[in-house]
């Protein structure tokens, strides 16, 4: 069953025949072998697959961290597959947020300073930045933890800080790469609940890579990758 039901109008994300080849000649490795994927505004997509299935490569391309070898990637209707490094950086700055498995917070830097980071690159003045960061930390349930550094926070709290950092600049899409990979089940569920709430209440589109079926269950739609191709793409029965 193919989920591209709304074929009319412009999708938020549209991949057509996207391939990615690493290396050249005999050493060449085909990570993506032609991907067609449409993601609408407000969706919550879980990308699943074994390691080497191409799911991370796909997320890197969706997150504009990498360019496809061939094929077309339209973001809000604009072709972005052949952008330069700096152009992709600007795109990430204004439209994308990232959450990583290892949190990737700056060491010896307080939670609020970590959360502010994207606003610094957007040139938001310091006062305004503090206000927004404070509000965003509160939104992920970390009121009162502003001046703690990552080493003083639990894994779940660190991931919340990372989520706050990802959403502070109101991105169109949140790219999450194994966001619960380093957390225990209870903490993982809290993080997934938070992501669902952000998707539902703030309307943030979420694309999440995971290999845990439990976590994928939280998404509205599950896409399975195998050997660089999409194996299945289904709406999730669960409603949240």
């Amino acid at each position: 069953m193919v989920a591209s039901t709304q074929t009319n109008g412009t999708a938020l994300i549209e991949l057509q025949g996207v391939t990615k080849v690493y290396g050249e000649g005999h050493a060449a490795m085909r990570a993506l072998a032609g991907i067609d994927l449409r993601i609408e505004q407000g969706d919550f997509v879980a990308i699943m697959g074994h390691s080497g299935s191409g799911k991370s490569t796909c997320l890197n391309i969706l997150g504009c961290l990498d360019s496809p070898t061939s094929g077309s990637y339209r973001f809000q209707g604009v072709e972005v597959s052949q952008l330069t490094r700096d152009q992709r950086a600007r795109l990430r700055r204004y439209y994308l947020g990232f959450v990583f498995q290892g949190y990737n917070l700056l060491k010896r830097t307080t939670a609020i300073e970590n959360v502010e980071l994207p606003l610094i690159y957007r040139g938001v003045p310091a006062r305004e930045r503090h206000q927004i960061a404070r509000r965003t930390l509160a939104a992920v349930g970390l009121e009162g933890w502003e001046s703690h550094s990552p080493s003083e926070l639990s894994g779940g709290q660190q991931q919340r800080v990372a989520i706050a950092r990802a959403i502070i600049a109101d991105p169109s899409v949140l790219m999450a790469d194994e966001p619960t990979g380093n957390l225990d089940t209870a903490r993982s569920e809290e993080i997934m609940d938070l992501l669902c709430r952000l998707n539902r209440e703030a309307g943030i589109t979420i694309v999440m890579v995971t290999h845990e079926a439990d976590m994928a269950e939280y998404a509205k739609r599950i896409v399975h990758f195998k050997d660089g191709r999409i194996e299945s793409d289904q709406q999730n029965g669960r409603t949240n």
């Binding site: 997150g63 961290l65 490094r85 700096d86 950086a89 600007r90 795109l91 990430r92 700055r93 204004y94 994308l96 990232f98 990583f100 290892g102 990737n104 917070l105 700056l106 060491k107 980071l117 994207p118 690159y121 957007r122 950092r165």
Partner: peptide, 16 residues
């Protein structure tokens, strides 16, 4: 390196 990676992912330009 990871900090630099994070900054680049967030949208820092090369020259920044």
């Amino acid at each position: 390196t990871r900090e630099v990676g994070t900054r680049l992912a967030i949208g820092a330009l090369e020259r920044e």
